[in-house]
Every structure is written in structure tokens, then in C-alpha cells.
Amino acid sequence: MTTYFDFEKSIQELDEQLQKAKQLAEKSKIDLAPTIKDLEEKILLEKKKIYGNLTGWQRVQISRHADRPYALDYIEHCFTDFIEQHGDRNVKDDKAIVGGLARLGNQSVMVIGHQKGRNTKQRQFRNFGMPNPEGYRKALRLMKLAEKFNIPIVTLIDTPGASPGLEAEERGQGEAIAKNLLEMSVLKVPVICVVIGEGASGGALGIGVGDKVLMLENTWYSVISPESCSSILWRSWDHKAKAAEALKLTATDMLQNGLIDGIIAEPLGGAHNNPEEMYATMKETLTQQIEELKKFGSEDLINKRIEKFSGMGAFEEV
């Protein structure tokens, strides 16, 4: 069963017609090939029309689609030899962040990502992809390990935010994220960060300081979710679509504002519509980026990374 968004209603209707035509053709042995072909073309056109013109809020919805590939899906399909490493060596193993050594083509990499769940049970197990401090500390432990053995780092960002809770505060959620920001800015190995779904605030940035920060086409990255923004500024959740526009949180906006380094195209209809194509694009992009970054010495990498983030901001000076 495909899940359609409100804005995909016309696609849904055409898809249903197509299914019926196919069924009818099979049953009655009537040659419906021209009709089917016609419908398929219409669907393609409609998809191109809708997906060529998405609003911020629509992209937020796509970024949260339950069938979208998650970090472990990318790890399974783009990498080989993955050995998951658990725990922060201090408190426990956070299930909202996964990571470990793997191979990308011929290159060993350390891959780390937020992990969400698909059904209720998994979602609870993964805490909805909201890490606790030990998740960020596990991530940092793995990054330092990669640095030690001169292995490039790939992070996959997909979180509705760092977990807000009693234990998170007791164990220093703020400190954990802050420490990662500082340490990541001076890692001696190439760091590539890709927003694969939701990029909510400090929870996302906590594994998001890299030489190349990329966003998939239908993802979002901002300081707050549109819902929370709406509830704070408009005092109600009803203005989330307006908030999504105001926050300029799409990949296109982020690139335009110089806050990310590039956009990775998704298959038509979103990553969930053709995961295989998405994995192929992801693998190719990561391979290319790592090759590119491996040319630089560590000092060069660090200087450029710090310079890039230092240049972010909009102000005037008199």
C-alpha cells in the first residue's frame, strides 16, 4: 500500500485508474495497452508538475514519509562490511544514533546516523530518532576512533530533535552537543554530513559539522520544527505551513543562503518512490566527495572547515 500525501491526490486517482485498467486488461484479454501507456504518461507528467513545484511544508511532509530510507537502509545498501559499534563507554547505548566502520566501494569509512523506527514498537525503541546525550557521545567516540586510524567520516542526519527529558538534562544534553560541535570542527579526517530526512536544530547539528554538508532534495534543516515555531510565534500549531515557508528550511533555501554545500537529487516522487535509485545516487555522491576531500591534508581540511562555518551569518557593519 502506497501512502499518498494530500497534495498527491491527483496522482493517487491516476494510479487507481491505472491499476483498474491493468486488472481489466488481464481479466478480459482486451488490448488496453494504449490506455495504460497513456495513463502512465499522465502520471509521470503529474508527478513532474507536483514535484517540480513543492512548498516548504510539502517537503517537510515528504522528509517524514514512513517509507523513506533511514540511516540503516543507506548503510545496508550503499556500504558493505558494516560492523555496528555500540555504546558511549560511559552510560549506555543510545538506539537513536547508530554507527560503525563500513566500506564504501574500496574505501573504509566510519558511518554514523540518526535512526528512526517504522512502526510503533521500533519508533519507541529508537526514541523517534531523538538522541540522548550518550548518543552524541557515542558518535563522538566513533569519530575520534576514525580520526585515530585516518578513516573518513560520513554522518546521516535525520532527527526531529535531541530528546527533551529528565535524563537528557541530568546527563547534559547541551554539553554533549556543544562538545561535538567543537570536536567535529577540528577532526583531522574528511567529514561528510548528509541530511537524509529531518534536520531539526541542535539535535541535527550535533553530528552535522563537516567539510561538506549536503541535503537530499526533499529534506529540511532549521533551528526549529515548523510545528514548534508555529506554537511559539503564533501560539498555535495551525500555522505550521506558514512557519515552514518563513523558516526557509528547504535544501534550495539553505544552499542559496550559503549554509550548506550542495543538494543531492532524489528520484521523482521522493526517495521512498525509488529507493534503489536513491541508494545509487547516494553511493556515487559519497564516493566522489570522499575522493575529492582525500586530496587535502588535515590542516587544510580543518582550516577550510572552520573558515566555512565562521563565514555563516547575516549582519551589517557600520
Binding site: 547539528l205 549554509l259 551569518g313
Partner: peptide
């Protein structure tokens, strides 16, 4: 962070932390 500067505000976290590393 200041919501009205959205991701610009967010990146100030990375910027200041990177400077502190130096």
C-alpha cells in the same frame, strides 16, 4: 537561538564552537 534568523542562528552554534577550538 533566534527563530527569526532560522538556520543562520543555528549555524552560530557551530561557528562559535569552532572558534573556541582555536
Amino acid at each position: 537561538a533566534r527563530m527569526m534568523e532560522a538556520a543562520f542562528s543555528l549555524m552560530q552554534m557551530a561557528k562559535t564552537s569552532a572558534k573556541l577550538a582555536l
